[in-house]
Simulated scan of single mutants.
Amino acid sequence: MSTVSISTATQRTSLALPILVGGGVAGLLDMTSAYITFGRYMPIGIAGGIVGAAGRHVSVGLYILGLTIHYFIAFSAAAVYCLASKKLKFLRDNFIVCGLFYGIAVFLVMQLVVLPLSAYHAMGPYQYRGLVQGLLAHMFLIGLPISISLRTLSD
């Protein structure tokens, strides 16, 4: 009985590092891309997804809230991928292709679930350039760093 609990604890800790590194790197790369594309007040826009119209006013509290939400989403995406890899071994074996497709999946969840449920109720019409840029950014700046961190940092 104690062997099972030690084995379970070992499995959980073996994913902690890939989740932290993958989520941190993906969050940093995505936020850097957002700063370049949308400007330095992008975290306030993210916070506006929760606070609504109050997100139009610049404040340190909203800035920190936006960064917190952004990194929460990045770490959550990393956790989902890493936990799924325990059952779906091909996620680790084919990490480049799976990471790119996972980036697409994260993009679709953000566009079709998270943004419509936010206080902004963001829905199309979308511009072609924005869709392509968003897809590529999520593929290479979110999906790939998460899958690479899992491949290199897990047992």
Results as ranks from 00 to 15, higher is better:
Thr37Gln: 04
Arg40His: 14
Tyr41Ala: 12
Met42Arg: 13
Met42Thr: 08
Pro43Ala: 10
Pro43Asp: 02
Gly45Ile: 09
Gly45Ser: 11
Ile46Asn: 01
Ala47Asn: 09
Ala47Val: 06
Gly49Ile: 04
Ile50Thr: 12
Val51Pro: 03
Gly52Gln: 00
Gly52Val: 01
Arg56Phe: 14
Arg56Thr: 13
His57Lys: 14
Val58Tyr: 12
Val58Asp: 14
Val58Ser: 13
Val58Gly: 13
Val58Arg: 12
Ser59His: 03
Ser59Cys: 05
Gly61Asp: 07
Leu62Tyr: 12
Tyr63Asp: 04
Tyr63Ala: 09
Tyr63Leu: 10
Ile64His: 09
Gly66Phe: 03
Gly66Arg: 00
Ile69Ser: 05
Tyr71Thr: 10
Tyr71Phe: 13
Phe72Leu: 15
Phe72Tyr: 06
Ile73Lys: 03
Ala74Ile: 05
Phe75Gln: 07
Phe75Glu: 02
Phe75Met: 00
Ala77Phe: 11
Ala77Tyr: 08
Ala79Trp: 06
Val80Tyr: 03
Cys82Ala: 14
Cys82Met: 08
Leu83Thr: 13
Leu83Val: 13
Ser85Phe: 08
Ser85Met: 02
Ser85Asp: 01
Ser85His: 03
Lys86Pro: 09
Lys87Thr: 10
Lys87Met: 15
Lys87Ile: 07
Lys87Leu: 10
Leu88Arg: 01
Leu88His: 02
Leu88Ser: 06
Lys89Thr: 12
Lys89Met: 07
Phe90Gly: 15
Phe90His: 15
Leu91Cys: 02
Arg92Met: 00
Arg92Gln: 11
Arg92Pro: 03
Asp93Ile: 03
Asp93Leu: 12
Ile96Val: 14
Val97Phe: 09
Cys98Trp: 11
Cys98Asp: 01
Cys98His: 09
Leu100Ala: 04
Leu100Asn: 00
Leu100Gly: 02
Phe101His: 08
Tyr102Pro: 05
Tyr102Ala: 05
Ile104Cys: 10
Ile104Phe: 07
Ile104Ala: 09
Ile104Glu: 05
Ile104Val: 12
Ala105Val: 05
Ala105Pro: 00
Ala105Arg: 06
Val106Leu: 02
Val106Trp: 00
Phe107Asn: 04
Phe107Leu: 07
Leu108Cys: 11
Leu108Phe: 08
Leu108Tyr: 08
Val109Cys: 04
Met110Gln: 09
Met110Ser: 08
Met110Glu: 02
Gln111Glu: 15
Gln111Cys: 13
Gln111Met: 15
Val113Phe: 11
Val114Cys: 08
Val114Asn: 09
Val114Trp: 11
Val114Glu: 11
Leu115Asp: 04
Leu115Phe: 13
Pro116Glu: 07
Leu117Pro: 04
Leu117Ile: 02
Ala119Glu: 11
Ala119His: 06
Ala119Lys: 02
Tyr120His: 05
Tyr120Lys: 12
Tyr120Cys: 00
His121Leu: 06
Met123Gln: 15
Met123Trp: 07
Gly124Val: 13
Gly124Asn: 10
Gly124Thr: 12
Gly124Glu: 03
Pro125Phe: 00
Pro125Thr: 03
Tyr126Gln: 06
Tyr126Val: 02
Gln127Cys: 07
Arg129Val: 13
Gly130Ile: 06
Leu131Gly: 10
Val132His: 11
Val132Arg: 12
Gln133Ala: 15
Gln133Thr: 13
Leu135Cys: 08
Leu136Cys: 07
Leu136Thr: 08
Ala137Thr: 03
Ala137Cys: 06
His138Pro: 09
His138Cys: 09
Met139Asp: 01
Phe140Ser: 12
Leu141Asn: 04
Gly143Cys: 01
Pro145Phe: 03
